[in-house]
Design a protein around this nucleic acid. Structure first.
Lengths: 282, 282
DNA sequence: GGCAGCGATACCTCCCGGGTATCGATTCAG
DNA sequence: CTGAATCGATACCCGGGAGGTATCGCTGCC
């Protein structure tokens, strides 16, 4: 199986429309139809059910979509990491660390300081992204290491070390009556009239249906909360974000959040090993 | 990057010889040379240092060898799992479980019994292989789930659940004087005159240099021990293998061995989930 | 210095990936 | 019920590139 075929199939499987998929791939529709047919013949499997009006995935098709994405990520990672390794030979053998924008900022600062203080430390580029994007960046080689937050982020397929564990707090507009309480329960927060929990985008960039306002990062979220349009449940460390319009109340029964440092298995560069060592020493 | 190019590069990087690599790939040498050059041009990296007499890997080349193997495994896995999914639609949605030949046999028997007793259990094919091969089989889709033994096997990149932990024992010929002792230490066993520890093949199928006899599976090993030609350090459960020519003595300071059930992340078939559930209940 | 081994180059062939034009089926407007 | 629109499949053509053969050039080594 060639990566070209995989890319074609993934495009069609995501669009469920040969014309749009062809457009996205920058080719005409007929060669795309042929390529998919040929792929099906070679696999001996029907991947798509097409009745000239709608296209749907078969069982085998969804397996290939999932596995094919992973395989394409692995190929992309091979490409990028090789390029980086070639650059490293001439100059800058840096690391790329990715984390959610607005999360674990003091932990990250401490980590970067601790690592920079080590002899022979490499430069660390910090990449901020929305929630759910980190796994992707780590898998396809755009990042070398990530700070993830269980149970929100999945650590499946990565090596990890736990860095810290913390409870969660309710984040409310400062004027809200509940801010006077010493503590709350999840049930108090999930159904606040007029203060829905926000919706975060999924891995594909689209927002799930629901009542809350769509939100891309923590800055947006804080602003919406200060405006009295949303509430949130966040790790305790978000309290370091001082904002007069926002108050936090401890939650007794929210799941604890574990911050972990994660990296792709088998990647054992000296720089990465040093960063991980610095992290576990924190 | 196309998988064809990756296959070509991996072949050359493993053989370090264009002629042999071309033969292995079933093509002539000139197209292979061209393909590698083109790959290097596109990556903007020198992968191989060649001086018309010897070929060596550059730093970037070893990165691409490691990452490329992983990517090819992922592509192979996509291929195989899609084929299996297509077959499953027509008939047999079975699982393939891989474990080291001769290890954890009673645990495996209990697991298979427990799972088979569940309603709606799928058929489980058991694949036995040499040590170090399991990770490969799991990564490239030839197996769905494995029993691994830490710290001997690496679980990097897989999801795992611990099943059991046990100490290790020295395995000696029955006639050996040390068999009378109540217990031993590692130092007593590693340097036994005339009874070297065996050599297991590495992931590439070749044997490391050393004194011990090369060994492919546990049956061979037991035979060599009974013949007085080798000794071994194995998990306690190997005592279930009763053999009059063989005796075991507890080791006080050997690392404990943890048997884990491991599967590729993101693979969540109903059958696999059931097997894992049965395993953790044991 | 001649020879053997090995990778690179030159040059040719042919397959296959991609394009355009068109067909056939299905859906929907009116 | 009919015509138009939409969409995937088919027919056919073209060009690039993958692969083959012949050969060159370099490098150790008797």
């Amino acid at each position: 199986m060639e990566t070209r075929e995989l890319r074609y199939f993934v495009a069609v499987a995501e669009e469920l429309h040969f014309g749009r998929a062809a457009q996205r791939l920058g080719i005409a529709q007929p060669p795309l139809s042929r390529a998919i047919r040929q792929l099906e013949r070679r696999l001996g499997a029907t991947l798509l059910e097409r009745n000239s009006r709608t296209v749907t995935l078969t069982e085998a098709g969804s397996v290939l979509l999932r596995e094919g994405r992973a395989a394409l990520d692995a190929v992309d990672a091979a490409d990028r990491r090789t390029r980086r390794a070639a650059l490293a030979a001439t100059g800058n053998p840096g690391l790329v660390l990715v984390t959610k924008a607005g999360a674990s900022s003091e932990l990250l600062a401490k980590l970067l300081d601790a690592y920079a203080a080590e002899p022979g430390a490499a430069t660390v580029d910090v990449l901020l992204c929305g929630p759910g994007e980190q796994e992707r960046l780590l898998r396809d080689g755009r990042a070398d290491v990530a700070l993830l937050h269980r149970p929100y982020d999945s650590t499946a397929g990565f090596d990890t070390e736990e860095l810290s564990t913390e409870g969660q707090v309710a984040v409310l507009p400062a004027a809200h009556p509940l801010t006077g309480r010493a503590h709350l329960r999840m049930a108090d927060v999930t159904a606040l009239p007029g203060l829905p929990l926000p919706r975060w985008p999924g891995p594909d960039g689209t927002y799930p249906d629901g009542p809350g306002p769509p939100v891309r990062d923590h800055a947006q979220l804080y602003q919406l909360i200060a405006l009295g349009r949303a509430s949130a449940v966040l790790p305790e460390s978000c309290r370091s974000h001082r904002d007069p319009g926002i108050a936090t109340v401890p939650l007794l029964d929210a799941p604890t959040v574990t911050t972990v440092i994660a990296w792709p298995p088998h990647s054992r560069s000296r720089a990465l090993a040093g960063l991980i060592r610095a992290a576990v020493r924190l």
